[in-house]
Simulated scan of single mutants.
Amino acid sequence: MTAPIQTLTEKEKETLRLLVDGHDAKSMARQLGLSVHTINERLRDARRKMAVSSSREAARKLRAIEHRPPEKIADKPLGEAPAAAGVRDGAPHAGKRRSVRLLGLVAGAILMSLALALLAFSSATGTGGPPAAAPPAAPTESAAADAARAWLALVEKGDWKASWEATGQSFKALNTVEAWANAGRQVQGPLGAARSRVLIGDEYVPAPPEGYRMVKFRTDYTNRAGVIETLSLVREGDTWRVVGVTVD
């Protein structure tokens, strides 16, 4: 049972510990200074890695391995998660980084994004030393990735109506054109124009009812480099449509 648990990240373990201590998603978000969406992402990833059907089962397994005594819920402040996402995980100066999250939900309130851990490797070579490793090849773009890239191009042009029309039914059910335009301007405006966009992830997520495709780009904007854009897409008829997007 320890093998799956060893695959958990420290952030996922942290979230599971709070869950088994009696917290719900909202109080965990308040405790950690995150959004409820981020908390649910961590729980979903932990369930997948541990091959269990519920977050509480994953939390109990972790507690059984670690033999940690339960903390008292009374010691934890409870409440709603912050309305606007602006806190970076574990950052002592989180206010310096702005993270705005926009999401649409698939039927059954399936969350449409996963957290991506990016590891930065640096190497130096000297005389006679080993050569630096070649960078990994970029994944081949699928039809879903093409649709995601085309959708982001509409967003960059400020064509809010066309980009809204290119979203899935679950997104439209939660967002009017006006609401989407207002949220989109708040994110897109400060970034400026996109200078480059590289595909860094494209995978199928087997979630009900029919699964979805998660596509990730690393984009350099005029005012900020290294922005991670995560889009979730579902297939409606013969077309891939965006149902969720996060910009970090």
Rank of each mutant, 00 (worst) to 15 (best):
A193M: 12
H93W: 14
R68G: 00
S123Y: 07
D220S: 02
A25T: 13
V215D: 01
T38D: 10
P136G: 00
D146L: 09
G192A: 03
G129D: 10
D220W: 01
V227E: 07
I65G: 00
R213F: 04
L78N: 09
A109S: 12
M28I: 15
P82I: 02
A81N: 07
S113R: 11
P209I: 04
A74D: 15
A183T: 13
E12N: 00
I228M: 08
V87K: 12
A193S: 12
A207E: 15
E141V: 00
R235F: 05
M1N: 11
Q31H: 15
A117V: 14
I73T: 14
G86T: 14
L43W: 02
K76A: 11
S55M: 05
E66H: 07
A183D: 13
G184K: 07
V20W: 06
T125A: 05
P135G: 00
T7V: 04
L199A: 01
S170P: 08
L199M: 04
A181C: 02
S53K: 15
S122Y: 09
S232R: 03
L105A: 06
Y212L: 07
A179G: 15
E156C: 02
G90L: 10
E71M: 10
S196E: 11
G108D: 07
A51V: 14
A94Q: 13
P208M: 00
G128V: 04
K172L: 02
M50W: 09
V36E: 15
T127E: 14
V198F: 01
F121M: 12
P136Y: 01
A133M: 10
V87L: 14
V100M: 12
G86W: 12
R235I: 11
E236S: 08
G108C: 06
R97M: 14
A46I: 10
E14W: 02
T15C: 04
M50Y: 06
E165V: 08
R56D: 12
Q186G: 11
R42V: 05
T230W: 02
R197M: 10
R235Y: 05
S99P: 07
V36C: 04
S113N: 12
R149T: 10
P206R: 01
L118A: 07
G201W: 08
I65E: 15
K72I: 13
A83P: 09
E203P: 01
V234C: 01
V20G: 00
A120I: 14
P139D: 01
D24Y: 06
A91K: 11
I65A: 12
A137C: 00
A124P: 02
T246K: 08
K61I: 06
L154C: 06
M50E: 11
A120L: 13
K11I: 08
N40T: 09
A124E: 13
P92C: 03
L114M: 11
E236V: 10
T2I: 13
G211F: 00
S99T: 15
K96Q: 15
E178Y: 10
L111C: 02
Q186Y: 11
A207P: 03
S122A: 09
G108H: 09
I228G: 04
H67T: 12
A64L: 14
K11F: 04
A94R: 15
T219R: 03
K172P: 04
T219W: 00
A29C: 09
M214A: 02
N40P: 06
G90T: 11
A193G: 06
E165M: 06
T15A: 08
L62Y: 06
F217H: 04
E66R: 09
I5A: 05
S35A: 11
V227R: 03
